[in-house]
Design a protein around this nucleic acid. Sequence first.
DNA 1: CATTGATTTGACCAACTGGTCAAACTCACG
DNA 2: CGTGAGTTTGACCAGTTGGTCAAATCAATG
Lengths: 204, 204
Amino acid sequence: MPAPRAPTRIQRKNRATILEAALDVFSRSGFRGSTVDQIAKAAGLSKPNLLYYFPSKEAIFNELMAGLMDSWLDPLRRLDADGDPLEEILAYVQRKLQMSRDFPRESRLYANEIVQGAPRLHGVIAGELKDLVEEKTALLQSWMDNGRINHAHPKHLLFSIWSLTQHYADFDAQVRLLMGDEDPFDAAPDYLETLYRRMLTPQS
Amino acid sequence: MPAPRAPTRIQRKNRATILEAALDVFSRSGFRGSTVDQIAKAAGLSKPNLLYYFPSKEAIFNELMAGLMDSWLDPLRRLDADGDPLEEILAYVQRKLQMSRDFPRESRLYANEIVQGAPRLHGVIAGELKDLVEEKTALLQSWMDNGRINHAHPKHLLFSIWSLTQHYADFDAQVRLLMGDEDPFDAAPDYLETLYRRMLTPQS
DNA sequence: CATTGATTTGACCAACTGGTCAAACTCACG
DNA sequence: CGTGAGTTTGACCAGTTGGTCAAATCAATG
């Protein structure tokens, strides 16, 4: 195994440019629908030049995914057992919604993968994500058992949060066509806050 | 233009077989990720034979989509202005959830298209679907104005129903990995009924 | 400015893809 | 059984794709 050299200035810049371009292309067309040439052109490089920085199309994709998963899990990690249950959940919902607004390409890339059966993500989902979900659903369950929020199936509660927030990124094309001039993100925060407040506020 | 002949028995059978196989393949890999050969193999035909029944890959896809859109819009069409508002909405939610359970491939095919910007669906979405959405959101708004259900942004309400119900089909891979042995559709109907009941039941 | 390693590229290749076509085969019907 | 329309296929084609490679260019260091 050759000792890994420290990356040069040019290497750092070009690898970053390539990953940015790849995110754009992959999130628009999925893995199989994207070509190395498209990514190269989007990055302003020739195809052989791009392949000088990454050994293959799949390598680009995997590096992108690895970086993605971490920021993906972060909002859930920050769900704090010591905070006020309802406010914690509402804050989590808003964090996820912000991510849909600010990083729609990342959301679509992820969605593309899952819709197609997550062939390249089984590992992460079954591992890191599952562990985190088990931990946090246990927390939700304890909040419910203590009467601090209304009862609801905790896993389905999580699914619903992911689903509702990511919908604005993943189905952006549809949402915008149907909303016309109105920016979906104007009313979405309020809508989701109201929804979860009404659903989870403990009934006396 | 040649007069269209009545389809023979073999034609009817093979065209149906092809569409069924195409649904399977397209819903798993999207349009660009699927090959005519895959579809042909899945249908038990040779590629030239398949192309004897459909002029092109795109033609198969379009016919599939045309058939899909109709059954897709149907549950919303059946939202009845004369029924009890809350029960109508809850029934709509359950109809959509049933469709996710019974026709997950159709849901994923649709999702695949939208995530990639709906390049082949602009027409239908901007036309038929938009008209239907305008009609039904007006109905929802009137129910809210009359105090028969709680206030909420009607378009976001629709989006949330689509999102929550289709999630179980579109993200099936993730949902099942995280739920382990438990069948997601065991608790989902109850979860969604509770969610929308708490959210929409008019507050006195 | 010379040299050496890092970077870039045009030309190329093998595999795959959507689609064509003429020839062969099958089947219902007289 | 013969015949003509309906059906099936092997061989083929042109365009695209992921990836390679040797040669050319560039940049930093002494």
